[in-house]
Simulated scan of single mutants.
Amino acid sequence: MRMSQGVEWAVHTLLNLAWSDTGEAVSVATLAEGHDLPRAYLNKQLQQLVKAELLDSVPGARGGFLLARPAESITLLDVFDAIEGTDPLFRCTEIRQCGTVGTRTACGFTTACAVKTAMGRAEEAFRGALAAQTLADVRTQADTHAPSMNRTVRSAFGLV
């Protein structure tokens, strides 16, 4: 499985908005410039975050985006699902029942496919790990490595 860049961009953007934390909306242009991202593509990701109720969109000349919820209540799974969707990562097409192997089996296929079951357990662990981490957790970890990031982001966004 490979995540799209949109997940990385979304988490960093949410993190930057958590650091900016002034109650002022930040424009898509400012957010995109913060990491040299293409504005149109970032805006697409931001609209998905608005739809998922992770961001609020403020219209107008001084509009932009704000966190819709506290960072403590936004999980990495929320972000992943907003950008990648909630469809299962693995789709079993029951190839065990096809071809020369499938037509020669005597088991009757009354139990769940073992491959599907194993992949389901893996996805459940993946989603559980994302659900267990909030944006606030990521911010705390990032603050440990770069304690001045909130000032850096506010300065870069002209919010000082």
Rank of each mutant, 00 (worst) to 15 (best):
S4L: 03
K116H: 14
G6C: 01
D36Y: 11
D81W: 01
A136M: 11
T117C: 02
N43T: 15
P70D: 13
L42G: 01
W9C: 01
F90C: 08
E94V: 01
L14M: 13
Q133R: 15
P59R: 11
G128A: 04
S73D: 14
T30P: 00
A131S: 14
I83D: 01
G63I: 11
G23P: 08
E8Q: 10
A68N: 10
L15D: 11
E72Q: 14
N150K: 13
D81C: 02
K44F: 07
L55A: 03
R96M: 06
E124N: 12
E124G: 08
T134W: 08
T86S: 15
M149F: 15
G158A: 08
R151E: 12
L42K: 03
A10P: 06
T117L: 13
A82Q: 05
N16M: 13
T110D: 10
A146M: 06
V153R: 04
G158C: 06
G158S: 09
L89R: 14
E8T: 13
A71L: 03
G63P: 04
K51L: 11
S27I: 09
V58R: 08
A132V: 08
E94L: 15
E124S: 15
A125K: 13
H145M: 03
D21L: 05
M149L: 15
E84S: 10
E8P: 00
A112H: 09
E53R: 13
T22A: 05
N43V: 00
A82K: 02
N150Y: 01
D56S: 12
H12F: 09
G85T: 06
Q5V: 03
M1G: 12
C107D: 12
A156V: 12
S148G: 04
L77N: 06
D56G: 00
A122N: 03
I74C: 04
G23S: 07
S148R: 12
